[in-house]
Amino acid sequence: MIIKINGKYYKIKKIEKNPNGKYTITTENGKKYEFKNVKIFSEEELK
């Protein structure tokens, strides 16, 4: 799965839903981001 952050695309390693309704997304390079609204892309959609 792929996520778009600030115009760049990252591969997703893990998605966790937090009790506060936000999502914590861990990218393949180990960085964590927290979002309220998340749009996930499949690799097929990006081709």
Rank of each mutant, 00 (worst) to 15 (best):
M1K: 08
M1S: 07
M1C: 11
M1Q: 07
I2K: 06
I2R: 08
I3K: 01
I3R: 01
I3W: 03
K4S: 09
K4Y: 14
K4E: 13
I5M: 06
I5C: 08
I5P: 00
N6S: 08
N6W: 09
N6M: 09
N6A: 12
N6P: 00
N6L: 08
N6C: 12
G7M: 05
G7Q: 07
G7N: 10
G7S: 05
G7R: 03
K8G: 03
K8Q: 10
K8W: 06
Y9S: 05
Y9D: 03
Y9R: 03
Y9M: 07
Y9H: 05
Y9T: 05
Y9W: 14
Y9V: 06
Y10C: 08
Y10N: 03
K11F: 07
K11G: 04
I12G: 00
I12N: 00
I12P: 01
I12R: 00
K13D: 06
K14W: 11
K14H: 15
K14L: 13
K14R: 09
I15D: 00
I15C: 10
I15H: 00
I15L: 09
E16P: 00
K17E: 06
K17G: 04
K17R: 12
K17C: 13
N18R: 08
N18M: 14
N18W: 09
P19N: 10
P19Y: 07
P19T: 14
N20M: 05
N20Y: 05
N20E: 09
N20A: 05
N20R: 06
N20H: 05
G21T: 01
G21C: 03
G21M: 02
G21A: 01
K22L: 14
K22N: 15
K22Y: 15
K22C: 15
K22F: 14
T24N: 04
T24M: 09
T24K: 03
T24L: 12
I25V: 14
I25W: 01
I25T: 00
I25P: 00
I25G: 00
I25A: 02
T26A: 01
T26H: 07
T26F: 10
T26P: 00
T27E: 01
T27P: 00
T27F: 15
T27L: 15
T27K: 01
E28L: 14
E28F: 11
E28I: 14
N29E: 12
N29P: 01
N29Q: 08
N29G: 13
N29S: 12
G30L: 02
G30S: 01
G30A: 01
K31Q: 12
K31D: 14
K31Y: 09
K31H: 11
K32A: 04
K32Y: 05
K32V: 15
K32C: 09
K32P: 01
Y33G: 01
Y33P: 00
Y33Q: 01
Y33T: 02
Y33S: 01
Y33H: 05
Y33V: 06
E34S: 10
E34L: 06
E34H: 09
E34Q: 13
E34I: 14
F35N: 02
F35Q: 05
F35Y: 07
F35G: 04
K36E: 15
K36I: 12
K36V: 14
N37G: 07
N37K: 12
N37Y: 15
N37V: 11
V38E: 04
V38F: 07
V38D: 06
V38M: 09
K39Q: 13
K39S: 11
K39G: 07
K39V: 15
K39Y: 10
I40P: 05
F41N: 03
F41W: 13
F41I: 14
F41P: 06
F41C: 15
S42Y: 15
E43R: 01
E43W: 05
E43H: 04
E44K: 06
E44N: 10
E44Q: 10
E44V: 07
E44D: 13
E45Q: 12
E45K: 07
E45C: 15
E45M: 11
E45T: 10
L46D: 07
L46C: 15
L46P: 10
K47I: 13
K47M: 09
K47R: 12
